[in-house]
């Protein structure tokens, strides 16, 4: 990531000791991070990690409790409106205006930013094209599918041609086909040089979209890097997964010691981390272990998260 830091380009977001408290509860606990122009930056973490709270502080709709935050070089406490004018926000829950049509949703949203009516109409038509909703322009929002609503929300967030997009769980709850459609649009934005900040609890989404990410757990950032760096640093190249018939796994205590560089016992399977997964499978057979199924796969961010927190991303 440091090679991306061209001299003279200030980060678009700079957080130091950034903290959010609700009463006595700390939702975001003194986190530090920078987001550079043009990159796709992710917050990966399970539910309740503090991702949304962080995004809302960046989006200037939630005052920070402590620390410092600069967005586009400005202070959200004093220049919130100015910052929001240059952001594109896709909140976790769709906040479309159910009393208006698809096209009106885009037009009135552009008006909130102060663009002229003809300009808003022009951009609305362009964006409907971009998210493939042109033929739904005159429909109300409610009958749209989840994926269409998500795409409309993305179109809406682009109406002000933002310098920075904040996407809070852009594809949660969507079926695979709808997810790929959203990913595809986000890719195109990335190629145009739009800076993306997104949260997710899907490791495949983080791997697909993010140049760089931080892993968040229990209000804290526990690791930072590109997906590849994180996997290299916190996991092995491959993982062998063993599943046993019900009740058998508990009887095998200690029999995995020394298989690969690390063992994780999950309720339903045993993971053996090694750079050569096949070798581990052979070694296990030689020890007389008889798993029901064996799977050798590459390490993912899921493994990174497991290593860092001892838990799975999606409980």
């Amino acid at each position: 990531m440091s090679e991306q830091r061209v001299a003279g380009t200030a980060p678009l977001i700079q957080a130091r000791g950034l903290t959010k408290r609700f009463g006595t509860f700390t939702a975001v606990d003194a986190v530090d991070f920078d987001v550079q122009p043009g990159e796709a930056f992710g917050f990966l973490g399970p539910n309740g990690a503090g991702k949304t709270s962080t995004m809302r502080m960046i989006g200037c709709t939630s005052p920070i409790s402590d620390g410092t935050l600069l967005v586009l070089g400005m202070d959200p406490r004093t220049e919130g409106a100015k910052i929001r004018g240059r952001l594109g926000v896709v909140p976790q829950q769709d906040t479309l205006d159910n009393e208006l049509t698809v096209r009106e949703n885009l037009i009135i949203y552009g008006r909130y930013f102060g663009f002229s009516r003809p300009e808003c109409a022009r951009r609305a038509d362009e964006l409907l094209e971009f998210v493939q909703l042109t033929d739904r322009g005159k429909d109300l929002v409610e009958p749209l599918s989840g994926g269409m609503k998500r795409r409309l929300t993305i179109a809406r967030s682009l109406i002000n041609e933002p310098d920075l997009m904040l996407l809070d769980e852009p594809t949660t709850g969507l079926d695979p086909q709808a997810r790929h459609l959203v990913w595809d649009r986000l890719y195109r934005l990335k190629q145009r040089g739009v800076t993306l900040v997104l949260t997710t609890h899907y490791m495949d989404e983080a791997e697909q979209l993010c140049d760089r990410l931080v892993v968040m757990d229990k209000a804290k950032i526990v690791a930072e890097g590109s997906p590849r760096q994180l996997i290299e640093r916190y996991s092995t190249r491959e993982v062998a997964e063993f599943r046993f018939p019900a009740g058998v796994q508990e009887t095998l205590d200690g029999q995995f010691e020394g298989l690969g560089s690390r063992i994780e016992k999950l309720p339903d399977r045993v993971l053996a981390y090694a750079d050569d997964g096949e070798a581990v499978v052979i070694a296990a057979r030689e020890r007389g272990l008889h798993p029901e199924t064996v799977l050798v796969r590459r390490s993912t961010l899921e493994d990174v998260f497991l290593r860092l927190t001892g838990r799975s991303l999606i409980e």
Binding site: T61, A81, R84, G85, F113, N160
Partner: peptide
């Protein structure tokens, strides 16, 4: 949710 969406603008 209308107010919430409007607040993400200026």
């Amino acid at each position: 949710k209308t107010f919430a969406s409007i607040l993400t603008t200026p």
